[in-house]
Design a protein around this nucleic acid. Sequence first.
DNA 1: CTGAAAGCGCTTACAG
DNA 2: CTGAAAGCGCTTACAG
Lengths: 365, 365
Amino acid sequence: MDGLSRPVRSSSITLRDVAGVAGVHYSTASKALDPTKERLVSLATRARVREAAATLGYRPHLFARGLRRGKTGMIGLILPDIGNPYIPPLVRSLREVLEADEMTAIIVETEDDDRRLVRALDSLAALRVDGVIAGCARIGDEDRLEEFDREVSPVVLAIRRLPGSRLSCVSADDVAGGELAARYLVGLGHLRLAQLEGPADVQPFLDRSEGFSRALSAQRRCELLEVGERAAHPSYDEGVRLAHALIGRGEPMPTAIFAHNDTMALGAIDALHSSGLRCPQDVSVLGFNDSPLAERCTPALTTIRTPSGEIGRRAAAAVLARIRGEEVGDQLTTPALVPRRSTARALAVGPARPPSSSRRKVTVR
Amino acid sequence: MDGLSRPVRSSSITLRDVAGVAGVHYSTASKALDPTKERLVSLATRARVREAAATLGYRPHLFARGLRRGKTGMIGLILPDIGNPYIPPLVRSLREVLEADEMTAIIVETEDDDRRLVRALDSLAALRVDGVIAGCARIGDEDRLEEFDREVSPVVLAIRRLPGSRLSCVSADDVAGGELAARYLVGLGHLRLAQLEGPADVQPFLDRSEGFSRALSAQRRCELLEVGERAAHPSYDEGVRLAHALIGRGEPMPTAIFAHNDTMALGAIDALHSSGLRCPQDVSVLGFNDSPLAERCTPALTTIRTPSGEIGRRAAAAVLARIRGEEVGDQLTTPALVPRRSTARALAVGPARPPSSSRRKVTVR
DNA sequence: CTGAAAGCGCTTACAG
DNA sequence: CTGAAAGCGCTTACAG
């Protein structure tokens, strides 16, 4: 009678419709269509129901099913920035694992902003996601994330670990990555080095710093030059800014720079370039992550690979396990050095200087 | 009794719980909490219900509500590739508009693969999304997309129009963009030009080709060199490949190249570079889209801006309108030229040639 | 202004 | 093997 209150689209085919065509009760149709329950239904009925479903184009209403079963089949994926080239491969691998379990990922972005995180968590709670993969954790987020884990659904950390939290985490071994960076550059003969550090509220950057400077201090004669500040965001623009800060100090330039991610490394290379310094001839630059753009730039970027595919797969498997009620431990993947063109042997001769400053000295003297 | 079948988490606070604490029927609680219905409830009750909801931390179960109301609050966003730097800004702007209407976007990727499109549409149908924004349309997808629009929920096209379809579309005016590219390069004095074309099953690339070559043929003395093939994907790698194809022909090089998107332009620049040709001194390169990386590379890329923020917002507004039952027309946004460092005046002197081939000629002669 | 009932589309014990 | 019933959490006519 009330045409307006009914769904308009033809394809809101329901189990009732299927059952009607097949001539059975809709609960029987439900069982016939459920692989785990089909054995409760006679072969003949099964066939009839399936045919009816096929000809009608029936699709189970996932959220109706979810409501009944007490789950939604949705996983929240909280990311700081989907524009970071490291992210898409990770999202893809993660989604593959989720989809194999009929789960769908909902991506929300925080842009490393507190209020956005709160809002993201709010919506995911209202959506009743079955679990969350948080790739956005900043030091200080422990409580919020753990509360969600306690009150709504399981949360696992990915990429960014949170030492002060009991939430399990899948990430790279960033300390080892920093060490690897240092040892490689030292092996190339570099004695004066610097690092462009990511924000201090993100543990991986702290870890990379620690690994790098620790491995360096184990070497005699190696000097770690201070940039004086860290990046506000681990972005190209900040890479440019910090590199210029380094150049502008007036002190001798390092012969090698370790940037805390690939994007900052690209910024640094372009900044060097625009200051008349060549990479790698004057200054070697080493990135971190091995995101897709690392091999697609000039010079191709030497970097530390932190396998995003594997981290994505493991993180997905970890939430799925926690949803099943299993406990999962932390998982660190081992980073690997990928040598390309942006690093070179240190020259035996004296320190490179920004052309302008060396020119200045020449004219002054 | 049966502890196992009930939700475990404390926060599955339901309307019943709230009503219990407030001492009212749960239907009354529902009204008290609904801004559009709160006037049906006495002030005192309203206050009590709200307080109960707040102290219990009640959140409406969005999918339960959706089931009752016949909508889910979800919009499917079908994209070929979230790794394309043009995409994140578009996703962000689009999401802003959707969120203002309490809608959530579900992103699925097709990688321009037929089977993935089918699967994507399948899942979105099972999710009963209220609408779809398809940024993945390839020529030939008309039927599938229109069927979804007819049977499941409204589909609007974004970025890629589909001339053979009645689905409404929000995109850039790609023909005008191609013309703009041609006129700009001609204005710089270039007489021998080439374009690196994207796949022929994507209308925007066809449009860019058409605009470019049409504007060029209107000029006397301008020559459009044939590359001989199009890109299989509009990617960096294909940009590299096509540029090498151009260089390897043995014919004189163009002095300006129009790449059908920024990513291909970057590939082309790197390919030129690795062949000893400088951009822009030897060859100017013009991109398309003005994705974020265009201003963050060396040389900064001259490109055609097709405002992703605006396209995203309009596309979101368009689905929302269609969901409300309104018809919406096609919308073309006007592209604009963004001059940067990768293009320069054509030299008055003779054609640039790949160094190797010119060297060869020198030694041979 | 409040409550009781029906129902969104499904699943799942429970009878027969 | 099949069906009838209850219920997931909500909203919304409909009575009172």
